[in-house]
Design a protein around this nucleic acid. Structure first.
Lengths: 204, 204
DNA sequence: CACTTTCTGGAGTTGCTGATCCATTTTTAT
DNA sequence: ATAAAAATGGATCAGCAACTCCAGAAAGTG
C-alpha cells in the first residue's frame, strides 16, 4: 500500500480533504467504486472539480484514502469493542450489536471494507493490500479478546486463538455477505451463533 | 430475477449465445463487471458487436445470464459433491478440494458468485436476486449432506442442520474472501477447519 | 507588509463505452 | 423453391467520466 506523498496541508486543506474522503466513502459504499463518479463526489462534498485533483493524484489515490478511512472507522470501532470483550456473554452481546446494526441498515451494503476488497481485489493492488491490512487488524482485535479470555481462565490455554479469531472473522464476513444477498439477518445470526456455540464448547 | 424473454434460437444461435456468456463470465471474474467492456467480450468470444445485442437487450441482461451461468457451474459442482457427502471424513475431503483449488488459482478471484453479488448487490436488483438463488441452492446442497449424516446416524437428529448448513456456507464465503485478500489459503483453511471441528464435536 | 505557497472555481478536452443502424448472409419452415 | 426469420459484420453515434488548465482568492511566512 503506497502512502500518499507527504504534502503540506493547511488546517482548511485538511478539512477539505477529509470532506472529500468521507463523501467518497459514503458514495462508494452505496454505489460501488465504479458506480461513483468524481462528479458525484464533487457535488456531495461541495467542492470544485480541481480540488479533488489538488488533494489526490487520481481516482485510485482517492480510493486508497477511502480504504484507509474505512479501516479506521470500522476496524477501529471493533478494536474498541474487543478491548473489553473477555467472556462468552460479552461475545453474544457483540453479536447482537452487529445483527441489530444490519437490521437498522435493512441488510444493505454489507461490510464496507469487504465491498471495497471484493470490487478492487484483482484490479488495484494497493487497494487489496489496504483491505488486507484492515482485515489483519480486525483479526488481531478479535484474537486479543480470546487471549483475554485465556488470561481470565475462561478459555483453555491450549486453544489456538489465532485460528479461532480468523474463523470468527470469516464467519462474520460470510454472514454479512449472505445477509446482504438475502436481505435477511437470519444467515448472519446463524453464522455468528454457530461460531460462538463452538467457542462456548471450547470454554467448558 | 426476471427471465430472458423467450426467443427462438437456432442451434448455431445457442452456441453463439453460450460463447458470449462464457467469455463474459471469464472476463467478469477477472476484471469485474464494471471493468469488463462489451468490446472485451466481443473480442474474447470472437463475435461482432451486433451479435451481443442480438442475444441480450443490454449489458444488464448479459450480466444476469452470467449470474445464472455461474450458479450452474459453481453450485452445480457442489451439489454433485454433496450428493455423496455423508460423513466427517468426506467433509474434510471436500475442504481439501476447495483449499487445493484456491492454491492452484493462487488465491485470485475468490468465489465468482460472491464477486458478482458484492459488486452488483446494491446496483442491480435482478443480479442480487440471482445470486441469492445461487446461495440458496448452495446452502440446500450442504444441508442435504448433513441430513444424510443424520439418516446414517452420524449426526444426532436434534441438530439444526438448517442453521449448520448456513454457517458452513458463511464460513466458506468468508474464508474465500480472506484468502483472496491475503493471497493465502491459511485463513480459508482456518475457517473451514474450525467449522468442521464444530460439526465433528456435534457428531459424537 | 511583501512574498510564497496553498487552495479554489469552473470551463474545457479527450478517450472510451454502451448502444444503434442497416445491409448482407445463413438457416428454417411451408 | 421461396418466403420468413434468425444470424452476422461493421460502421457510427452520443453521452459520460476522468482528467487538464489557468486564473484568481485565501492563507501562511518572514
Amino acid at each position: 500500500m503506497t502512502t500518499t506523498p507527504a504534502r503540506r496541508l493547511t488546517r482548511k486543506g485538511e478539512q477539505t480533504r477529509a470532506r472529500i474522503v468521507e463523501a467518497a466513502a459514503d458514495l462508494m459504499f452505496v454505489r460501488g467504486v465504479a458506480g461513483t463518479t468524481l462528479d458525484h463526489v464533487r457535488a456531495e462534498a461541495g467542492v470544485s472539480s480541481s480540488q479533488i485533483y489538488h488533494y489526490f493524484s487520481d481516482k485510485d489515490a482517492l480510493v486508497r484514502a477511502v480504504v484507509a478511512f474505512q479501516n479506521d472507522a470500522i476496524v477501529g470501532q471493533h478494536e474498541r469493542s474487543f478491548a473489553t470483550l473477555d467472556s462468552v456473554p460479552a461475545l453474544r452481546a457483540w453479536r447482537d450489536q452487529i445483527v441489530a446494526h444490519q437490521e437498522r441498515m435493512q441488510c444493505q451494503g454489507g461490510c464496507p471494507i469487504a465491498a471495497l476488497g471484493s470490487e478492487l481485489g484483482e484490479l488495484d493492488l494497493d487497494a487489496r493490500e489496504g483491505v488486507a491490512i484492515g482485515f489483519h487488524r480486525w483479526q488481531a482485535a478479535i484474537r486479543h479478546g480470546f487471549e483475554a479470555m485465556q488470561s481470565r481462565g475462561t478459555l483453555p490455554a491450549e486453544v489456538d486463538v489465532e485460528t479461532l479469531a480468523t474463523a470468527t472473522l470469516a464467519a462474520l464476513q460470510g454472514g454479512l455477505l449472505l445477509c446482504q444477498m438475502h436481505r435477511s439477518t437470519a444467515p448472519l445470526a446463524a453464522a455468528l451463533d454457530t461460531m460462538l456455540d463452538h467457542v462456548e464448547s471450547l470454554a467448558q
